[in-house]
Design a protein around this nucleic acid. Structure first.
Length: 220
DNA sequence: CTATAGATGCCCT
DNA sequence: GGGCATCTATAGC
């Protein structure tokens, strides 16, 4: 069987990112996550169910814990942000606007509350599973072009809060298939926040049509 | 294509 | 009770 869903490239073995990858500062880790793959492999009793859902990460934002007024971790540990203060490499999922879920990779040393928000993916595999029943008519371009959209496409809810992206205990991993991050990523202020909106901590893959609709250029 | 309004519930002060 | 790390439908160019 083919291990993982990533299509093999010559000379490259797709590899799940190790925990050490996430242990750095989120301002460094975030742009390095560009062009990595988010993979969901659903299994029941050890048997694979359906095809993997795979998307390439094309937009991210860094949130820098207690030093960042825009971070959910800014005011210290609470019931909601518990996972952020745990070890890196886990998924922090939060609920917002009464109806949407968003997902972050916890970064930095345990206890810092650092994280990287996954804002957009380019869908590669399992698009029909991503559409599901609720989004049957959704065009490819709009399936995962936003932080809440990608969670819906991948079925990420509170059940996945705390999922370990390194062990894949919830079927979710981040995989390096050998594509390097862009050498000159787009940079701007973060989207949809009011505090610390000027910090240039959003990065995207230039020219990718799946980048979310936000501020066009660098923070103005 | 852009702009705007409304949905809707949880967390935290 | 205020404020959301958003999305979709709809109206108007």
């Amino acid at each position: 069987m083919t291990p993982g869903a990533a299509r093999r490239r010559p000379g490259v073995v797709p590899a799940v990112l190790p925990r050490a990858f996430y242990a750095g500062d989120p301002v460094v880790v975030a742009p390095l996550l560009l062009n990595k793959l988010l993979v969901r492999s659903d299994r029941v009793g050890g048997d694979r169910v359906g095809g993997d859902r795979v998307g390439r990460i094309v937009e991210v934002e860094a949130y820098r814990g207690s030093e960042d007024p825009a971070s959910h971790a800014f005011a210290g540990p609470t019931k909601r942000n518990t996972v952020m203060f745990g070890p890196p490499g886990h998924l922090y999922v939060y609920f917002t606007y009464g109806m949407h879920w968003c997902a972050n990779a916890v970064c930095g040393p345990a206890g810092t509350g650092h994280a990287v928000l996954l804002r957009a993916l380019a869908p590669l595999s399992g698009l029909e599973a991503m559409r599901g029943a609720r989004r049957a008519g959704t065009a490819d371009r709009h399936l995962t072009s936003g932080p809440a959209k990608l969670c819906q496409a991948f079925g990420i809810t509170s059940d996945e809060n705390g999922a370990d992206l390194v062990t894949g205990d919830h079927g979710l991993t981040v995989v390096d298939d050998g594509m390097a991050p862009p050498s000159d990523p787009g940079v701007s202020g973060r989207i949809g926040i009011r505090r610390a909106a000027d910090r240039p901590w959003r990065w995207w893959v230039p020219g990718d049509p799946h980048v979310s609709r936000g501020r066009p250029g660098p923070a103005s």
